[in-house]
Nucleic acid binder design. Sequence first.
DNA 1: GCCGTTTTCGGCCCGACTGTTTTCAGTCG
Length: 580
Amino acid sequence: MPTNRDVLAMLAELARLTTLDEGSSQSFKVRAYENAARGIEGMSVDVAGMSLAELVSVKGVGKSIAEKIREFVDTGTVAKLESLRERYPPAIVELSKIPGLGPKTLKLIRSELGVENLEDLQRAIADQALRRLPGLGATSEERIAKAIERLGMHGKDRRTPISEALPLARRLIEGLEKIEGVTSVQYCGSLRRMSETIGDVDITVAALDPLPVMDFVAGHAEAAEVIAHGDTKTSILTRGGLQVDVRVVAPDQFGAAILYFTGSKSHNIELRQRAIDKGWLLNEYGLIDREKEQIVAAGSEDDIYSALGLAYVPPPLREATGELAVAAGAGFGDLITLDAIRGDLHYHTTRSGDGRSSLADMAAAAHARGHEYVAITDHGEDLAINGSSRDEMLEHRAAISEMQERFPNLRLYFGCELNIGPDGSLDYDPDFRRLFDFTVASVHSHFDLPPDQQTARLLAAMADPSVDAIGHLTGRYIGRRPGIEIDLDAVLEGLQTTGVALEINGALERLDASSEVLRRAMGGDVKFTISTDSHHVSELSRMDYGVAHAQRGWVGAGRVVNTMALSEFEGWRTRRRAST
DNA sequence: GCCGTTTTCGGCCCGACTGTTTTCAGTCG
């Protein structure tokens, strides 16, 4: 039976293909699919078990979508979706992901130039055919050419953003865990190491009988093609063109298997070398003493590291960049972990145009997660559409302090996500900005300014006494938009001297600042926040990703502001503001 | 395709930006 996640994936694909069909993401049909998904997103009951009448009562779900959901549950497919897939094959969907190439232009080049895939498009660009089409010109043609180049869409080195790969892996795992006889499931590879982009998805399953697992994978709705279907390994290609390998091992070898399949390759080589030094052999079946013909460790990764005289190495660190030396010595005692997090400092409500859960729901969600404090940082007035006027913000402040009474154990801060203008200017005026308990300032536009101007606008923003943190540093969307170019040294120095914290944004599309930047920043004395940038109650789990990503940047808990106890945090903020 | 009615049709968030134009179309958020 499909899970809610499966239904959401189906609706998302309907929305995506309908966008191409209707020529606009603002088509009312597309928005209806998205609204329906939104309605289902927050539900805790399984929609698969709901009747037509019950489905229609879900907000955003009408007769037509309810019928599609029933069709999906009963038959495993939706006729409407199938016909869309025929007209918009994966190669066309791929093209639609190129920035600057919207559905209208895609339709045009398809009908006028016969472009059906990336190769056709590149040929058309080489022939300068795009610039001859109505509404396009040389600039547009060059922009699209550059976008293709930046996406690295050439040939087989195509990588999938983690924001696509991880939800897919989780959907598969939900199903795998339900198979009888399966004791553990873990996604491995670069996905588990929290790489920004993923080549293929590796999933390791512990089960005594591999057969039902193999059959489940080969017959999965996500499988567009079965590449391999063996006794213990099955590989499929999804409709999105992503390869998924699922391997089954015996439960008592699970630790060795996930260690091996998680990699990285060079981390494994170093581990194996240590095993050899001790006269042992390390492979995917275990750590083995060959002479005595004994298994030293195999069941858990912890056991294997421990037998090798090493502290457990969290997966995001396994890149052979010095982690084994630390694991053999002092260990990773200060490394940030999820249980050290006490609050969330970038958090939206429906006060923001793009927020999808109410203040009450967002506060309840933070409380349920065990947070001690949360900064409600809805968008400032400068962000078109999504921002709030002064009056709206003042009303919001009153609403927050009223809400505070309902949550005695959760401190709610009146905050703001300020918008950094092209010249570093911020929303409202200095007096008004002082009203906020906590602010995060972020870049949302003008991504193409030269690096010195980008650096200058960031430095100007952090020099403002009302700014407490810089949000999603570069504004990148992994795999879609590269983000602004900056002079990193200058920015890190600015953060250090002003004491403004650098946000680690846990949204999988962002994971901004990058782990390279974080590691550089750890070299100095920069403070961090790890935030979810939640716009919906379902997004609080981004904290898990934010922390894992921070680990990849070797971020220490002592440097993360939202590990502080409430009073300590308030002291930090007061001192910081006084010093600017 | 959904919703809510002055209840079975008309409205649905819409402004900034860019590149193409001559008053606008397409993309993005």
